[in-house]
Design a protein around this nucleic acid. Structure first.
Lengths: 202, 202
DNA sequence: GTCTATATTTGGATAGAC
DNA sequence: GTCTATCCAAATATAGAC
């Protein structure tokens, strides 16, 4: 007898409830702040009492960890959904950064969890961290197509983007400052890091 | 009879104790994190019990508020101590940003309180906020000497600097990444925002 | 799997004696 | 001004019945 690699009814149900809890956790994060999530409130939102949550997650940090992985997976999906990037490398970078910015600006608490990591005591597990590294690798490959290599340039790009997003969130939440600035910023960055590309912005 | 505008013995003592508490608060912030300060621990560190703190501050937020103002005042002193800035505007900006970076990298919790403001529920009072605005005005005047004006350019500068510092603190705490990058960053920024200055970096 | 009940800890803040 | 004693609220997590 062959056991199919699908989950049985019970496991599927378990997994669905986990997802339901995570969805509620994101909602709660958006309304109360990420650090403002309490097990009581979270349970109430899915029609449970707090002890029942421990059937699905071993601790509150375990929930944050699942959210962290889920967040980065959502990012990878968004980038994948962009399809083929423009062949002009500068345009490609612009396209990716615009998406990056919209992704985080539309949900500031996601930015806090994924990029700022200011939740006291929380550190992602090895598996969840691995998901975030895929996003870094993707950025690296886009830079390489521009002839930009090295950790320094990558660090600079992240500093630039995360700095802008956090300013945007702090000063103009929900606004479109990012979208309006991203073109400028890409030009500034590329002109500096890949001078050979200067003037090829088209 | 003339009342001199100096504080009497009692007020001086009161003020000295306040300072002592604030110093202990910074120490505690550096070891436990800013959000990890508790009134009990803080009191213990100055040889008191927690209720006594309320003689000097009305609440915990009141302590954060005093720290906020103290932090920005310390920044203004550091900048003032630089003396006359180089007449070359690009060098002047480099000098200021280098100091800015060292000031915050050497005490990450200060950066959190002054620039990130992620303490739940804390907002600086009008007076304390005014101190921080002096720092912004100083940056604006340095930019003006470069012929760079407008809120957008100022925002971009802050995004760039705070982004870099938070990356530095997260990835290489205590390192000198900032110092090594600041020249690059200034060139990149000035080339973009004040093209007329291009090549005048000396 | 879910519940009630509760352990445990921790925190800010206050009352009132001295 | 400082203390002891205490209040009150909130939170995570566990034990054990159903």
């Amino acid at each position: 007898m062959i056991v199919l690699p699908t989950l049985d009814r019970k496991s599927r149900r378990h997994s669905a409830t986990r997802d339901e809890i995570l969805t509620a956790a994101w909602e709660l994060a958006r309304s109360e702040g990420l650090a403002g999530i309490s097990m009581r409130d979270l349970a109430a939102r899915v029609g449970m009492r707090s002890p029942s949550l421990y059937t699905y997650f071993t601790s509150k940090h375990d929930i944050y960890d699942a959210m962290f992985a889920q967040g980065w997976r959502a990012y990878l999906e968004r980038i994948a959904a962009l399809g083929k990037l423009p062949s002009n490398p500068r345009r490609a970078l612009r396209r990716v950064l615009r998406e990056w910015g919209e992704f985080f600006v539309e949900d500031p608490e996601r930015f806090v969890l994924l990029c700022q990591r200011t939740i006291p005591g929380f550190e992602p597990s090895r598996q969840s961290y691995a998901v975030s590294l895929e996003a870094v690798d993707h950025a690296r490959s886009v830079l390489e197509s521009l002839g930009i290599t090295g950790q320094k340039a990558l660090d600079l790009l992240f500093a630039l983007t995360t700095g802008l997003i956090s300013q945007q969130i702090a000063n103009d939440p929900g606004g479109d400052g990012w979208t309006r600035l991203v073109g400028d910023v890409v030009d500034m960055y590329v002109d500096h890091c890949a001078p050979a590309e200067r003037g090829k912005g088209a």
